[in-house]
Design a binder for these strands. Structure first.
Lengths: 350, 350
DNA sequence: TTGTATGCGTTATCAG
DNA sequence: CTGATAACGCATACAA
């Protein structure tokens, strides 16, 4: 682990100036003989150019940061899976931040952009505070936000459309003949909870179905909480024939409880999850789920950022990714579904 | 997005030298008045220190790389989830590489260590070739390998113990009274396939059970392949009463097929998976699975690397992480398991 | 305590 | 085509 060779080392050994070394290494016009000597010396010394010095000079780091709210959350991991290859293909390294859903940490990341250790940033904040907006306005590098920012914020913005997503699911259930469609939601003081709850109500109105408070059960976004919520719901509204769950974990909890209660899925009660995580295909019966396009949002965000890095100076862009309904056994499929091979039927939305 | 201020900008504005600015910014002894002026100027200019220049000078980047074989693989994601917070707490940024299981890409990452854009590396290679060993011997920064490297390789090494893992599972099945324990494996020319196959054989011998070729079915590490393999196995050996599957996906495929064939799990056939991914707890019945400690290996690797970065100059260390058996419904649990709350019963290994 | 000057490893400019 | 030299932004040894 001795100190590595620099262009100075090479220059000495080859008997030329560091300028010539640099030229050869960068493929600039050089006399054959010089080139030969330099390459030979570099080879013998096992020279590798120093990325830090290069960055200082070029003012580019070839690094891009992705700040996710939570490394453990499958939705963000889906984004990561798409972002990674796009950046890699373009020659950028990926610096990963997990902000643990703490707003202060997100602000920190935004602030550290000023350190110029990356050329750009993709961020998926939990919610956007005034402090966020302030930092975004002053950002010293291009930023793409996955989520929603107010009109006028000077950053590119990739959005999900949970309203349409919920509508797709509710309409799907309606088309299957379900009329007592309940909503099992997470806390409504969260951004997704509020959005999904409102979307549910809207979808019902849209179909001319009455909105019934009894059909709405609030719990939390975890499996155990989902199970508890569904148990309560069943006790209160025994004739429910469909469950719109605010995420896949809640839906898994629902399946647990329905099974224990002897209700057949989907025959007696149809179940729909949200986020379309890997768990949806793994469960039994496999779970119909609304994809809000985490993966695609990641991909689009990466592409938008790359355009900026290439010098695109257009106005801030807003892209909304269409949700999709992945229909599986919990609403419509056969009781036994062949092993998942990624070819689930999907219905486009928008 | 104008050019950011530097210590020169501050020095001018505050009417002091850049040396004083640097001193103030680094908390070195300074006259109150000077400090005040510098801080004021820095504040007004919105100064943030340039990480690149700082790295060039200090020869430290405060970045660590993690090279995973595949961003999509839950086992590596489990490592990532543990590595991230450890590094973050120590003030390091995480640079993520996905080598897509291509050996050349791994060599690339090792080579690029010479660029000094990170202070250290954690790598989990699929298999270790001579080229790997050569690069590891010449590495210009501390490296920790998750996986196995030959004795004498000058890097820290965190290993799994699939032999003990398989033994735990097979003994568990035996203790439940199973005597026709089959193995559903992936390709045996892969490292994990070979290791797990051998371990199965050894575990049987250990118990005095006869090894029967008919009880071994080779497929691939995917759900559909697992299902196919189990279907064949059932046709050939109808009296099988337990399945040791080489990973969770294969086990999920096994559950599909058993269900379709009307075999009750675990009553008729017990099923064990490996890797203990999230899917194991999500399936129904929930899946007993051998954890090879992906998460813990990640954590240990990060800690070992940090020690090196702090200057630990000890001999290369080898840490082996004990496997654990997470017992769930597919072997021993009740038919209905309350929603998963992370409190699965575990049996320690050695 | 403060300022001057130098170097970290590269790239780029400008004479020769 | 080549070499000397000046940045890039910061930290620091040394002199004042």
């Amino acid at each position: 682990m001795a100190d590595g060779p620099t262009i100075n080392t090479i220059a000495e050994r080859a008997g030329v100036s560091i300028a010539s070394v640099s030229r050869v290494l960068n493929g600039l016009p050089t006399r054959q003989e010089t080139e030969r000597k330099v390459l030979k010396a570099a080879e013998e010394l096992g020279y590798v150019r120093n990325a830090v010095a290069r960055s200082l000079k070029s003012r580019r780091t070839n690094q891009v940061a992705f700040a996710m709210a939570d490394v453990g959350n499958p939705a963000y991991l889906a984004m990561l899976r798409q972002i990674q290859p796009v950046l890699k293909a373009a020659g950028y390294r990926l610096v990963l931040h997990s902000t643990d859903a703490v707003a202060a940490d997100e602000i920190d990341v935004l602030h550290s952009l000023g350190e110029r250790y990356v050329d750009g940033l993709i961020m998926s904040p939990l919610r956007v505070t005034d402090a966020h907006l302030e930092m975004l306005a002053a950002a010293r590098a291009p930023v793409v936000i996955i989520g929603s920012v107010p009109e006028g914020t000077p950053v590119d913005n990739v959005r999900a459309d949970s309203r349409t997503g919920v509508r797709l699911a509710v309409h799907h259930l309606y088309a299957l003949g379900r009329r007592r469609i309940a909503m099992v939601n997470g806390p409504i003081d969260t951004v997704p909870g509020a959005a999904r709850g409102a979307a549910y109500r809207e979808a019902l109105e849209n179909l001319g179905l009455p909105y019934d408070d009894d059909l709405v059960q609030i719990g939390d976004f975890y499996r155990a909480e989902g199970a508890r919520a569904v148990a309560e719901l069943l006790a209160r509204v025994p004739d429910v024939d469909a469950l719109m769950c605010a995420n896949d974990l809640i839906a898994l909890g629902a399946l647990d409880v329905l099974r224990a209660a002897g209700r057949r899925v989907p025959d007696d009660v149809a179940v729909v999850g949200m986020d379309d995580t890997d768990l949806a295909a793994a469960s039994w019966p496999s779970l119909t789920s609304v994809s809000l396009g985490s993966a695609e949002r990641g991909k689009v965000a990466a592409e938008l950022l790359l355009e900026r890095l290439r010098g695109g100076d257009s106005e801030p862009r807003v892209v909304t990714v269409a949700p999709r309904l992945a229909v599986r056994a919990s609403t419509a499929g056969p009781a036994y579904e062949g092993a998942s091979d990624g070819s689930d039927r999907k219905e486009g939305g928008a």
